[in-house]
């Protein structure tokens, strides 16, 4: 039975530490419960991000991933366990998120994102959280979020280092293409599988992504819009760089040349990912 403030006794108990914070409170918690977040990738970054978003009581979480759980994922992808090896990550993730918080509606989307389905997948969600592991999907996510006017929480990792930002180009911030106009040529940047990744690194970066997502929903604090946060785990240092909106940005600038979604694997002429690595290193 719902109490006068709209929360069930279970919810009052579950969200007590949020409800007592003036920055969240009942109003903020209701916002979280009324928001939908699309998680791209249930891998290293998507695991902690998804867990904290579910724990925070986000109303609906969509999880896009085409992979099955592999033993080599378990060193860092904390959504999945030994018993999940061989299962689709969307199913494993949905079970784990649901067991963490049964209030959350979890929608598994077992698809490769591409130029034909991205807008359709994105349109039902308020915020997109990018934890993918390849450039073509990152550009697709950036462009689709821009076309639909949705904020995109960006995180990326390499070995011991990570980057976090928030792109909301429809509302004045730079986008990913303001920073990197075009993807690097294939082979210029090794994948996690080739380069290795320190297991706890995505725990830090994915948690920061959840933090930014929740702040954005609540409208509190200073967002990472227009800033790129760099984390170096070996030096244990955070640094921050300014991101400028590029007036000549090919997507969000004054004379955009990117006016529809691009499948970069075709553009580059080589496959952009190994089937077992899509969206989840």
């Amino acid at each position: 039975m719902a109490s006068p403030n709209g929360f069930t006794p279970d919810q009052v108990a579950r969200y007590a530490r949020h409800l007592i914070l003036p920055e969240v409170g009942g109003k903020g918690q209701r916002k979280l419960m009324g928001t939908s977040v699309l998680l791209l990738g249930a891998g290293g970054l998507g695991s902690p991000a998804g867990l904290y978003l579910a724990a925070a009581g986000i109303g609906k979480i969509g999880v896009v991933d085409f992979d099955d759980v592999d033993a080599s994922n378990l060193q860092r992808q904390i959504l999945h366990g030994v018993e999940d090896i061989g299962r689709p990550k969307t199913e494993s993730a949905a079970d784990r998120l649901q067991s963490m918080n049964p209030d959350v509606e979890v929608v598994g989307i077992r698809e490769h994102l591409n130029s034909t389905n991205a807008l359709d997948v994105f349109k039902d969600y308020d915020i997109v959280v990018d934890g993918t592991d390849n450039f073509p999907t990152r550009y697709l996510a950036n462009d689709a979020a821009h076309f639909l006017g949705k904020p995109l929480v960006h995180g990326a990792i390499f070995r011991f280092e990570g980057q976090v930002s928030l792109f909301d180009s429809a509302h004045g911030t730079p986008c990913y293409r303001c920073l990197h106009p075009e993807p690097p040529p294939p082979g210029a940047s090794p994948s996690c599988a080739e380069a290795g990744v320190f297991g706890v690194l995505p725990g830090i970066v994915g948690s920061l992504m959840a933090f930014e997502t929740i702040k954005k929903i609540l409208g509190i604090g200073e967002s990472l819009g227009g800033r790129l946060l760099l984390f170096d785990g070996l030096d244990m240092q955070f640094r921050e760089l300014k991101l400028r909106k590029n007036p000549r940005c090919v997507l969000c600038g004054e004379n955009p040349t990117v006016t529809q979604l691009i499948d970069y694997e075709q553009f580059c002429g080589v496959p952009s990912y190994e089937p077992s690595e899509q969206a989840s290193a």
């Binding site: 990738g41 970054l45 390499f158």
Partner: peptide, 10 residues
Amino acid sequence: VSIIPAVAGG
């Protein structure tokens, strides 16, 4: 001077 490459790992 910082060199910031595009990284895509996730």
